[in-house]
């Protein structure tokens, strides 16, 4: 059940961020410069987390802020600016990857029994010493591919929760959603990713 977006947007109306966006929407160059300064690190980090290539990250980050510049007029304050920027950033990454196509990702057919065992034993941490750099890169590409199997909203939610570390309450506030709605959406997104992993042969146990 969705909370009234207007109520939360109303609560946000007096925030300095809203004032900044409104100035940028009126065409104030200085306000846009401030938005870039404030979010460039976050945008660059999200992109780098997915793409892992500095040159490409720079190019995509420029494209993200160009998009922000041209679509800022359409931003309606129903979600927080940071969520809107996240959405644009993650979408740009996936558009970029789809265009690239050269990034052939590894599925079961390319994985031996040892590889599957290593993936199966992967704990909930990104600092698993058992994984060398090459394997980590390969798995990362696989995760990016798995995330392509869910909707844009689900992908953004999962990235904000698991990669950026937002809590459910924060996500609810940023997205103007009820906490239960966030939980249900997250659960469905997790189910879909697990199903995609199962289909790719990465989860051998029967699920759902």
């Amino acid at each position: 059940m969705e909370q009234s977006g207007l109520g939360l947007a109303g609560a946000r109306a007096a925030s300095p961020e809203v004032a900044l966006v409104r100035r940028a929407q009126r065409g104030e160059e200085e306000a846009f410069r401030e938005i870039v300064a404030r979010y460039q690190g976050k945008v660059f980090s999200i992109i780098h987390g997915i793409i892992r290539n500095r040159n490409d990250s720079e190019d995509i980050a420029q494209q993200v802020f160009t998009k922000i510049y041209f679509s800022l007029g359409k931003f309606d304050f129903r979600s927080a600016l940071v969520t809107w920027i996240y959405k644009i950033t993650v979408n740009e990454c996936y558009d970029y990857l789809r265009k690239q196509k050269v990034r052939k990702l590894t599925y079961e057919s390319d994985l031996g029994e040892d590889d599957l065992r290593r993936i199966d034993n992967l704990p909930g941490s990104n600092r698993n010493p058992a994984l060398d750099v090459g394997r980590r890169t390969e798995l990362r590409q696989l995760v990016v591919k798995l995330l392509d199997k869910v909707s844009e909203e689900e992908r953004n939610l999962l990235i904000m929760k698991e990669v950026e570390g937002y809590q459910v309450e924060e996500l609810a506030r940023l997205l103007s959603m009820n906490e239960n709605t966030v939980k249900v959406k997250l659960f469905r997104a997790r189910q879909k990713v697990a199903k995609a992993a199962k289909k790719a042969g990465l989860l051998r146990s029967r699920i759902w």
Binding site: L122, P123, N126, V143, E162, K198, I207
Partner: peptide, 12 residues
Amino acid sequence: AVEQTRGWLRLL
């Protein structure tokens, strides 16, 4: 399954 996929997401 959820815990496993969660571990993979954290690789990002």
